[in-house]
């Protein structure tokens, strides 16, 4: 066994290398199934985080991942990068709602996307999941959500805002303090 290379912060200048305009669009503007996932990243003082990197990973609309362990031939990349806006802390992804993916216990997981969050002042990445408010029955059966204390589950569920087209899901990330988003270790 060899010790892993330690993590370090992305710092304030990562945007020169990691992602750019368009990388937050995982599906094109003419995809009739497209949805928007957007929100604001906040720190422990309720100030917006002006320089966060969010990376999204998800299955396609049938629940398959573009990966050698699942379905490498999938035409859907399932990966995007977004930077929070300097003035507002807001990020946004355009994607599709993923299908259900299996759980090793034999159950199906509720539709969800994975997020990796990094920023200046974060020495390690944080991993979370975005679930969808209009999937209540599936969310109620989800094994991973079931591991989260009941009073914190809402931090993982994106709210459907209005009746916009494309559908718009709102998901804030609170790094610390009241309403702190649940982050996972796996």
């Amino acid at each position: 066994m060899r010790g892993p290379t330690p993590s370090q912060t992305v710092g304030p200048f990562f945007s020169m290398a990691l992602g750019g305009a368009g990388d937050e669009k995982i599906t094109p503007d003419d995809d009739p199934d497209r949805i928007v996932i957007e929100g604001i990243v906040f720190d422990g003082d309720r100030r917006h985080v002006e320089d966060a990197l969010l990376e999204l990973w998800q299955a396609d609309r049938t629940g398959r991942y573009r990966h050698p362990d699942d379905w490498p031939g999938s035409g859907f990349a399932g990966f995007g990068r977004a930077h929070t806006d300097f003035a507002s802390g807001r990020y946004s992804f355009q994607t599709v709602k993923p299908g259900p993916v299996p759980h090793p216990g034999g159950d199906e997981q509720a539709p969800h996307v994975s997020l990796i969050i990094q920023a200046r002042g974060m020495l390690n990445p944080l991993f979370t999941r975005v679930y969808f408010a209009d999937e209540t029955p599936a969310n109620g059966r989800d094994v991973v959500l079931g591991l989260v204390p009941v009073d914190r589950r809402h931090t993982l569920i994106a709210e459907l805002i209005g009746a916009a087209v494309p559908p718009q899901y709102h998901f804030d990330v609170r790094l610390q303090g009241e309403g702190e988003t649940v982050f996972f270790d796996f």
Binding site: G44, G121, M122, F183, F184, F186
Partner: peptide, 29 residues
Amino acid sequence: YRATVKRAPRSDLVSILQTLSETTGPGPG
């Protein structure tokens, strides 16, 4: 490193079993 103080979670991370969502990833594609 001062910027870490307000950007670090206070609650414990929630441990989960690795599923296909964690054992796959965007790297290969």
